[in-house]
């Protein structure tokens, strides 16, 4: 694009304001995490009176943060891995094969995406209670219930996006492999999936972020032993007091793994989104 002077000035102003909007809360998270407790008890200050790493040490003792961390990792990783695998299968079927009930299936997948989680929460809770009474399989307050819930919730978007992505991959690639004696599934795994890697990484990141950040179901379907991070972090506040510096330190700690993962896959993410969802 050929840039006029007006364009440059507008760009400078808009990007400066946007950067401030984005940076201020982020700065406050970081600055607060390094503040001593008396700093966060009084009037807000932009600059800590002294820098301390104490909150990052204390936060592990104040609440069982390590346990919450382990719970979140188990639930999120399992849900993400299964969700990616299942959406690969379903999207391949939608993109390449014709089978009975294909259109109803695609419609149901698309439409469940728009229903709010709140619609499913109470019925799921009741169903899980009933299953436990009937066959003794515990799902409330257990990893399993949370895993299958999260995994199912990221399926619609993942299938929708990945099937779009797979459609963009030339059919000739797998046909050539099949002529060489490979089965259809063999061709899918050896030829199609390596090419579709950006799309797969994009839906994996999507499922991961969804599960890692989920609040509503975690608030009802977990108990003290399986509490995940979003709910666990609330333990830093009591009726009378909030340990803001430790809360911010913990917030940074829980964000760091996915920020790093996110930055690492950023380029795949943009490629995956533009190829899958947009076309």
């Amino acid at each position: 694009m050929i840039e006029t002077r007006g364009f440059r000035i507008a760009r400078a102003i808009v990007l400066t304001l946007l950067s401030l909007f984005v940076v201020v809360p982020l700065y406050i998270i970081v600055a607060t995490a390094f503040k001593p407790l008396e700093d966060v008890r009084g009037r807000f200050t932009w600059i800590p009176s002294s820098l301390t790493v104490e909150p990052f040490i204390e936060m592990w003792r104040t609440v069982p943060l390590a346990d919450y961390f382990v719970n979140s990792v188990i639930v999120t990783m399992t849900a993400t891995a299964l969700s990616v695998l299942i959406s690969i299968f379903a999207s391949y079927a939608i993109a390449r094969l014709s089978f009975p009930l294909k259109r109803p299936f695609s419609l149901v997948i698309l439409s469940t995406q728009m229903f709010p989680g709140i619609l499913f929460l109470l019925p799921l809770f009741l169903i899980f209670t009933q299953i436990q009474r009937a066959i003794g399989l515990q799902l409330n307050g257990n990893y399993l219930g949370l895993i299958i819930t999260y995994l199912t919730f990221s399926l619609p978007f993942s299938i929708w996006m990945l099937s779009g992505y797979l459609r963009g991959i030339p059919r000739e690639l797998e046909e050539a492999a099949m002529i060489d004696g490979s089965s259809r599934l063999g061709a899918l795994f050896r030829v199609v999936l390596p090419v579709a890697r950006p799309g797969i990484i994009a839906v994996g990141v999507f499922a991961f972020i969804n599960a890692w950040s989920e609040v509503l179901f975690a608030s009802v379907l977990t108990n003290n032993d399986t509490r995940t991070l979003p709910i666990g972090l609330q333990s830093y506040s009591s009726e009378s007091d909030v340990l803001w510096n430790e809360l911010m330190a913990a917030s940074i700690t829980v964000s760091l793994p996915i920020i790093l993962a996110f930055l690492f896959v950023q380029r795949y993410l943009v490629a995956g989104l533009s190829a899958g969802a947009v076309k």
Binding site: I86, S87, F89, A90, Y92, A93, I94, L97, S98, F99, P100, L101, K102, F105, V108, I109, T112, I148, L151, T152, L155, I159, R184, L185
Partner: peptide
């Protein structure tokens, strides 16, 4: 194969 591949997703849905 198509039906087989959508079974897991359909069952979870």
């Amino acid at each position: 194969l198509g039906l087989l591949l959508i079974v897991p997703a359909a069952a979870l849905e």
